[in-house]
Design a protein around this nucleic acid. Sequence first.
DNA 1: CGTACACTTGATCTCATTCAAGTGACGTGG
DNA 2: CCACGTCACTTGAATGAGATCAAGTGTACG
Lengths: 226, 226
Amino acid sequence: MQTALATAGLAPLFGRSVPAVLPASLTSESRTVTRRTVAANDEIYAEGDRAMSFYKIAAGVVRTYKLLSDGRRQIGAFYLPGDIFGLESGEDHRFGADAVTETRLLVHRREPRALTGDDGALAREVVAAMMRDLERAQEHMMLLGRKSARERIASFLLALSERMADSVGTVCLPMSRNDMADHLGLTIESVSRAVTQLEREGLIELPPNRRTVILRNAAALRHLAD
Amino acid sequence: MQTALATAGLAPLFGRSVPAVLPASLTSESRTVTRRTVAANDEIYAEGDRAMSFYKIAAGVVRTYKLLSDGRRQIGAFYLPGDIFGLESGEDHRFGADAVTETRLLVHRREPRALTGDDGALAREVVAAMMRDLERAQEHMMLLGRKSARERIASFLLALSERMADSVGTVCLPMSRNDMADHLGLTIESVSRAVTQLEREGLIELPPNRRTVILRNAAALRHLAD
DNA sequence: CGTACACTTGATCTCATTCAAGTGACGTGG
DNA sequence: CCACGTCACTTGAATGAGATCAAGTGTACG
């Protein structure tokens, strides 16, 4: 979610030459990187906070969201280990972010030179993260604008299974039904009903704790998701 | 819509130094730029086409969209004069694009070096376009996921009026109700009804041809849009 | 002047929401 | 180890916002 690169940061972004290959420095320690651990459901930053840093997930799951004045919430995206979030083109965070599960973060202080050629690998990683966010957001508009509840659940489970790379055909759901609902533009009850229905139809299977999903008929799910 | 910069194009993007100020070359002729005029409702490129070029609008309005296998359509965005669209991170266009009105385009051939430091102004414009797309897509997810029909119309009219800069408080709608519906996740009838309702409530006013909207109570619209 | 097409309006239907219990997994303390 | 309480999830019934089906109306264009 969220874009990148302060307007002021754009010029430096293109202002230096870079060797072709660099260490994956986003995973290495450096003077601009600190660590932070956040408990489940704790806030990482709020919507409207000054965007001082951006983040890479070492472990855990994060959600970013926007609120309407009456409390309606839209979760823009879930971020998994390895993902970058919190990038903004402007001064402030346009979404809030909090931890879905206990999360360990690498915090990148957003300095004027943080995205310059000093670290081309970082800059490239940042641009790639932004592009991935855009593609996911575009795909998600299709889901929110035109898909039925069943189709939304099918799409969501498939997308998550592709990102989580659990044992083939099994997805664990780190987030609550409430989070799923606010991501998929549904109510918690509609999510529950759609999951139950897919289960009855034999497309998926859930253990008693209901937080893991086994994809029994991925082809049928893919057909539903279109 | 659509992102930018082939994966292969990322490295060159950061590979050259650039003077601080450059001509706005996206509006000037050069060997990589050609012109193209497209009639209303004609296709510019289809979803899945190889992304050979990206485009800047000289005049007219463009819509980008995705289709589900049964024909349901989601319009991702409308682009106005000055906007850039057709940027992709991958090989192919992930959305289709066609002209809403007769449109004049500047076509930028996507060469390996088209986004390098040879033209830092172009590269910066491209990244900025991508970021704007992302912010709009994120805002639109909130609309599609959580707003009522009335709220969607109010949000849409306000956003369009801010981009079109007509005489204050007047927006002309270049697109049909059908296009609005497929952008806002509604049916054409629901769009019509919501517009009529806002009109009856005195928030907007429409001349007999129904293709222009006068914002009579922008504050109330803004409150609706949240 | 007449035809076509876009938009509006009306009646009915449907899918998801809302409101209201119910069920079961998990953690805590006795 | 089991009783209890909590919280997340599920299920049921009633409601409602928007979709669908079906005419109308009016604007533009030849």
